[in-house]
Design a protein around this nucleic acid. Structure first.
Lengths: 136, 136
DNA sequence: TATTGTTATACTCTATAACTATA
DNA sequence: TATAGTTATAGAGTATAACAATA
């Protein structure tokens, strides 16, 4: 029964995700970002029409939980919020935000390359399609 | 750049794990268990020599965080704690714990079967080996 | 009526430090 | 010296309800 647990796809998925997140969080902490911060910076890059609600829907983050996240990015002067109309605000990168995004890209791309490299070649190309089938 | 995020293995891993955990948590809540509770029940099944520290090491849960978890299982009378020596306690299933384990197995096996079934056949057998390479 | 942004709140999971007692 | 069990605490992520203002 003990061994059964470690053979379950769900358990392997959980442990792999936890290990990956812990490692990525450490690397992003070196540039003073949370994982969700980095996702938001990548998502709004080159756009000027994404609202807080839009971002939340795309990243599966509740509207209410976007508030402290965007406050944090705003306090670090990485984003501005520009009125789209009298109700909505667009989240856009500042100059400093674009510079930080370049750091995010370097950390992320190195990390993702190392991640894939740990997977035996015969399984490598199957991971993303298999994972996407579980949440798309 | 926005599209890049959704193509990253790390991001797919995170979203797939979150979706899986949310679904599993819902099903286990129907039998009044947290995900970690179910893991512990499966791990100690048929054994009488696993300490809290042993379980924590195997499941990657800090010793300190095992305390409320085992207190919860103990309060539900699913486990007993028997002295192994004057320092350590073995976590063992009670009669009620063995009955609950049977429910856990039914929920878990149905869930894992459905999970695998969502993955296209050509990718299915690659998921667990790929995931295991990321944390083993 | 539905949606946006927000406040308040609570719960789970996780991480660290420190302490006592025993190996 | 190292390990087991525990307490206390803090940070991070997440979920829900409610509100005012605007679409």
């Amino acid at each position: 029964m003990s061994d059964l647990l470690f053979s379950l796809p769900g358990y392997a998925l959980r442990r792999a995700a936890n290990a990956m997140m812990a490692e990525l969080a450490k690397r992003l902490a070196l540039i003073d970002l949370h994982i969700s911060d980095a996702s938001v910076l990548m998502l709004v890059a080159g756009r000027d029409d994404m609202t807080s609600s839009d971002i939340g829907r795309l990243l599966d983050i509740q509207r209410a939980n976007m508030v402290p996240l965007l406050d944090r990015l705003s306090a670090a002067e990485l984003i501005d919020r520009l009125p789209l109309n009298r109700k909505s605000l667009a989240v856009v990168l500042t100059e400093r935000g674009r510079a930080k995004l370049a750091e995010v890209m370097e950390v992320t791309m190195n990390f993702e390359r190392e991640l894939l490299h740990r997977i035996p070649p015969e399984h490598r190309d199957h991971l993303v399609p298999a994972l996407n089938a579980l949440w798309h």
